[in-house]
Design a protein around this nucleic acid. Structure first.
Lengths: 343, 343
DNA sequence: TTCGCCCATGTAACCGGTTACGCTGTGAAC
DNA sequence: GTTCACAGCGTAACCGGTTACATGGGCGAA
C-alpha cells in the first residue's frame, strides 16, 4: 500500500506539500497540486485513516455500545444513528456488551483512541458503575437511560407516561380488571412501565394492588402468563403486556385455551413492533419511534462535538403514541390483514 | 488522558518496560510489573487503540459494508457477524453505502487504516467496479455475491435452487398456473430467484413462458401485483413472490378483492421473515438463515487473517429450506396464531 | 537597486504506542 | 578468576500521517 511519502517522491515534492495538496489546504500552486494528484492516482493512494486520526485527534467515528439486542429494536436504533452520522461523514464503531458488566467495561475501554464520542445504552447497569467505566473526557450520550447524578445528556422514552396512557385507555374502553405482565425485574424500561400501570390503576380506577404477572420480555413468557391467567382463574378483562413480544405469546396462549381476543379479554402491548399491525386481530400498543431515539442521540452527540456543553438538563424525552387496534376492540380488521372473518 | 509515558514516569521505568508489563510480555520482574500496574490504575490509563494499531499493523476490527438495508435482514446479518467477531475479540466498523456507487467507493476507502479485513455486500454493483474499489491487499469476503472473475471468497444463498424448489413444491401441491412476482430488475437475488422459477416451470411442468409480474421487494409492490392479478383476470392458482414482504402485500391485496388464500390461490414467499409464521394463514416460504450468512463470512475472514489463502473456490453456498405453511395449504393453523377460525 | 513581505515549499517534530537493539549485571561453567 | 549466556531494562527508531516553523525566491514599493 502506498504511503504519503511514496506519493511525495513520485510527485517530486515533500510530504508536507503532498499532504496539503491532498487535503485541499491553501498555499499550493495548481501545477504542483496536479502533479500530486497524478501521483495519487498512479499509486492508488488512499490516506491511512488510523495514522491521520492520531495527529488530528479526531477519528470521525462514534462508538455505539448496545446491550445484547436482537431484532427490530437493534436495527432501528442503528438506522436512526447512521442516518444522522452519515450526513456528518461519521462512521459507526459497534460495541456489544453481551450482557456482562465486565464486557461493558471492556467495550468502553476498547473505544479509546478509536472514537470521538460514545453512544451508550446500558439498560441494567448501575449509574455508579457506569461512571467508573466512562471516560469523562469523551463526549457521551446515553440511550434510554437517565443517569441522574452523572449529569450526562440522554435520550429516553417516557415509559411511565406511555404505560399510564395505555392503562387509562384500557379502563376507558370498559376494562375493570386489568392485569399487567411485567418485564425483567432489573430492567428500567420494564420497571417504569410497571409503575405507570400501577399508578394509572390507582388514580383512574382506584385500584390499589392490581394483578401483575412476571415476564421477561420474551414471547414464551407471554405464553406462560396466558396459562397462569387461564389455569389460575385470575379474573381479567384486559391484559397489558410490558412489550409486544409478550403480548404476541400471550395472545397465542389465550387462543389455545379457547379465549377470544378482544371478545373475552382485551390485550395491549408496548413498542409497536412491525408484527403488531399484522397480527389478527391487530395488536394495540404504544408506539415507540426507535429510530428517533438513535437519531436524536446522535444529533446531541454532534452538538457536543461541535463544542456545545450538554448535560442531563438537555435530555430529550420521547413520548410514545397510543395506537388503538383490534386487540382492544379498536379497528377490527385493517387493510393489512383482512384475511380472516373471525369470531 | 494519561499516555504510556505518563505511566512510565509514574512507575519510574522506561516506556518500553511499561509497554511490556502492560502487554504481559516476558522480561519484566514481578515487582516492576506491579509498579507499572499500580501506575496504570492510579492514572486510569487505557491504551490508545489507534496508536497501537498504527505500529502493530493490526486494528482488531473488521469493516462491514452493507447496502441500505432495514429491518430484520440487517440486524440478523450483523448479529451473525458479531457473534463470531466477538469470540475473536474483533470489533465491527459499520459502513453503509446508502445506495449510490460513489458512496460505496467512499465507504471502502474510509476503511483503510481502520480495519484488518472487509465484509462487503454489494447487491447491485458490477464486479469490475468492485474490483476498482477494493484494495487487493485487504482481506475481503463478499456477502451474497459471487464476483466470479475476481476470485474473492464469498458466502451466498442459493437463490436459484431455493426458487426452483419452491416452484416445484407449488406444482406438486396441485398448482398449474403459477405466477411469479419478481424483485428489482438489477438485483442479483431477485434475478436468480426468477431464473429458478422459470426453469422449474419449464422442466417440471413444461411451461415455457410463465407469467411474471414486476415488483421491487416492497409490500406495496406485492399489493400492486394483487390488483394486477385480479383486475387483469390473469389466471392463477398460485403466486410465488420473490420475497416475503411482497407476499404479505399480495395476501392483503387478494383479501381485499375477496380472494381466499389458499382456497382460491396459494401464496409462497422467500426469506422466512419473522412475520411469516405469524400471519394467518401462515406464510409458506424458503427459509434463509441470514445470521449464518454473516457468521460464515466472518469465519472465512478470520481464516484469511490467520494466514490461509481463500479464493472464490472456498465459497460457501447456503441452501434455503422449504417451510410449508398455511398459504400453500400446508399446516393451516399453527400454535402461534390460531386466533381465527377462518374461511 | 534595495528592502521587505508574502507565498510556495521543505524540514522535522509530533501524535501514542511497539519493538529492535544495545547495555548492564548476575550466576553458571570452565 | 575469567568468560559467557541471558535476563531485565533503556534508548531510539518507526508506524503514516499533520503541521509549526524555517527557507528561499519573486515582486512591489521606495
Amino acid at each position: 500500500m502506498a504511503t504519503l511519502r511514496d506519493v511525495a517522491r513520485e510527485a517530486g515534492v515533500s510530504v508536507a506539500t503532498a499532504s496539503r495538496a491532498i487535503n485541499g489546504l491553501g498555499n499550493v500552486t495548481a501545477p504542483t497540486k496536479a502533479a500530486v494528484m497524478a501521483a495519487v492516482k498512479k499509486l492508488n493512494f488512499v490516506p491511512h485513516s488510523g495514522a491521520r486520526s492520531l495527529t488530528r485527534k479526531k477519528t470521525d467515528t462514534v462508538g455505539v455500545i448496545l446491550p445484547d439486542l436482537f431484532g427490530e429494536f437493534f436495527s432501528e436504533i442503528i438506522r436512526g444513528i447512521d442516518l444522522v452520522a452519515h450526513e456528518s461523514g461519521m462512521h459507526l464503531l459497534l460495541g456489544n456488551m453481551h450482557g456482562s458488566t465486565h464486557e461493558t467495561a471492556a467495550a468502553i475501554a476498547a473505544m479509546r483512541g478509536r472514537v470521538d464520542g460514545l453512544l451508550v445504552m446500558p439498560p441494567d447497569l448501575k449509574p455508579e458503575l457506569l461512571a467508573d467505566y466512562l471516560d469523562p473526557a469523551l463526549p457521551t450520550v446515553l440511550l434510554n437511560y437517565d443517569a441522574g447524578s452523572l449529569d450526562l445528556p440522554f435520550v429516553a422514552v417516557d415509559n411511565y407516561r406511555g404505560a399510564y396512557a395505555m392503562t387509562e385507555a384500557l379502563l376507558a374502553g370498559g376494562a375493570r380488571q386489568v392485569v399487567h405482565i411485567a418485564g425483567p425485574k432489573h430492567n428500567r424500561d420494564a420497571r417504569d412501565r410497571q409503575r405507570g400501570f400501577v399508578d394509572a390503576m390507582n388514580r383512574v380506577a382506584g385500584i390499589r394492588n392490581p394483578a401483575i404477572l412476571p415476564g421477561d420480555f420474551s414471547e414464551e413468557s407471554g405464553a406462560k402468563a396466558a396459562s397462569l391467567l387461564v389455569q389460575g382463574q385470575l379474573p381479567a378483562d384486559a391484559v397489558f403486556a410490558a412489550n409486544d413480544q409478550m403480548a404476541v405469546g400471550l395472545i397465542a396462549g389465550l387462543a389455545k385455551a379457547g379465549k377470544s381476543v378482544p371478545g373475552d379479554v382485551m390485550v395491549a402491548g408496548f413498542d409497536d413492533i412491525p408484527l403488531a399491525r399484522h397480527l389478527n386481530p391487530s395488536l394495540s400498543t404504544m408506539q415507540v419511534k426507535i429510530d428517533q431515539l438513535g437519531s436524536t442521540a446522535m444529533m446531541m452527540l454532534l452538538r457536543i462535538l461541535r463544542g456545545e456543553t450538554l448535560g442531563s438538563a438537555s435530555a430529550t424525552i420521547l413520548t410514545p403514541a397510543l395506537i388503538a387496534r383490534g386487540t382492544t376492540g379498536g379497528a377490527r380488521a385493517t387493510a393489512a390483514q383482512p384475511m380472516t372473518a373471525n369470531s
